[in-house]
């Protein structure tokens, strides 16, 4: 069998794969209250990107093009879901979508996150990781720890701020 030339589809798979983090971040920021829906929309976006591989002009920036499609998929998903389920207004989703920076620093951020998770106290680290376990709910975590969900939410917020600050320092070491 001879080697196949690289087709637009094969190239597209590579691009899609290398920007999963950035696409997930954009989609989640527009659908912040539904982790499952955000994942579904990401999958659909991947598929649409792949299908449109031939239409994509590699001279254009990939992310700008992909973000446009992702935003379109988000809008479609919002139309499908019950309107009252949406936490954000259409206007806000459009604004956030348009403003979203077209860059991808997810690899650096994920690296920094590992370091910052290690700097947390064991208790904090365990809690934040438990919070993000698939299927975990703040309600259940609170019950298991004999805390009110509100109190646990405040604690999670503190951990989140610790991580955000730590990541900022790692990503911008010179900034004061």
């Amino acid at each position: 069998m001879s080697e196949h030339p690289r087709t637009p589809e094969e190239q597209m798979v590579g691009w899609i794969a290398s920007h999963q983090g950035a696409l997930h971040r954009l989609i989640l920021s527009l659908l912040p209250d539904d982790r499952t829906l955000a994942n579904d929309v990401l999958q659909e976006t991947n598929l649409v990107l792949w299908r449109k591989a031939k239409e994509y002009d590699p001279a254009r920036p990939f992310l700008a093009w992909a973000f446009g499609i992702a935003r379109h998929q988000v809008m479609a998903a919002r139309r499908d879901a019950q309107r009252d389920r949406h936490v954000f207004s259409d206007r806000l989703v459009e604004l956030l979508g348009e403003e979203h920076p077209v860059d991808d620093n997810t690899a650096e951020l994920e690296n920094a996150l590992e370091g910052c998770l290690n700097k947390l106290s064991a208790k904090h680290r365990e809690l934040i990781l438990a919070r993000y376990q698939p299927g975990a709910s703040v309600q259940e975590l609170a019950t298991a720890r004999s805390k009110s969900p509100g109190a646990l939410s405040v604690l999670l917020l503190r951990i989140r701020k610790l991580l955000e600050d730590c990541i900022d320092q790692q990503l911008n070491p010179t900034a004061s």
Partner: peptide, 20 residues
């Protein structure tokens, strides 16, 4: 506020992806 929100979602997204 939107900038602060984006910063928070960036971490939220990274933690979700990490867990999954």
């Amino acid at each position: 506020a939107r900038e602060q929100y984006r910063r928070a979602t960036a971490l939220h997204s990274a933690l979700i992806r990490r867990a999954e």
